[in-house]
Design a binder for these strands. Structure first.
Length: 202
DNA sequence: ACATTAAGTGATT
DNA sequence: AATCACTTAATGT
């Protein structure tokens, strides 16, 4: 993974030396809104979901973090020493390489390939974020739901999504009833197959 | 067999 | 598109 990024030799050795492997089970909350973050995570396996939430416990999924990626909000939080504006939860059990946050600033200055990596990730996540923003701002719930399913398919590499209507409703900040109705339409249009706790994209 | 959780539906706003 | 109130279906103990 590190070689793929063309990380410099010294960076790699430092990276390996000061970091450690963390295993996170499905459903674990890695970052809660308002928390200070002191480490930089890189995903080795699994997938994380980044969400925005309000005081009443509503939430909206922003984007996913996949293998060999990290979270731009976390980097932002580390570099500015500011509390996190987002939450992050484990979607599929993950292995994460965590390195101390205080190193990040130094690495960005010293290693151009690390710098590139950070900017590339940020660019990618910005685009994901805009895509979500567009969907929330301009799309009807039915289209939002379908886009959500497609995004999830792309993030997971699987056309089977193991989630309840309730869970999907939470992530889109709508009600379970609405999701069930729209799912029925998608099903009727032959766009999906449905089972309990499971949706298959066609 | 019973309780619990997931999903479907009509009516109302 | 949200909410209520209720039904039906699937699953766990």
């Amino acid at each position: 993974m590190l070689k793929e990024k063309n990380f410099e030799k010294h960076l790699i050795s430092d990276f390996l030396e000061c970091g450690k492997l963390k295993k996170a089970a499905k459903g674990a909350y890695l970052v809660s809104p308002g928390t200070e973050i002191s480490y930089l995570p890189i995903i080795l396996s699994g997938r994380l979901r980044v969400y925005r939430s309000d005081n009443e416990g509503h939430e909206v999924t922003l984007y996913y973090i996949g293998v060999s990626e990290t979270c731009s909000f976390v980097i932002n939080s580390i570099i500015n020493q500011a509390p996190s504006e987002i939450g992050c939860v484990v979607e599929t059990s993950a292995e994460i390489w965590v390195t101390p946050g205080y190193k990040v600033d130094d690495w960005v200055v010293k290693y151009s390939n690390f710098r590139k990596f950070i900017f590339q990730i940020t660019n990618k996540k910005m685009n994901d974020l805009l895509s979500t923003f567009d969907s929330v701002s301009f799309m009807k719930m039915s289209d939002r739901l379908y886009k959500y399913l497609i995004d999830l398919k792309n993030a997971s590499g699987s056309s089977i999504i193991s989630k309840s209507h309730q869970q999907i409703a939470i992530e889109l900040n709508t009600s379970r009833v609405v999701v069930s109705r729209l799912m029925k339409h998608l099903s009727g249009a032959q766009l999906i197959n449905q089972e309990r706790n499971k949706v298959e994209l066609l």
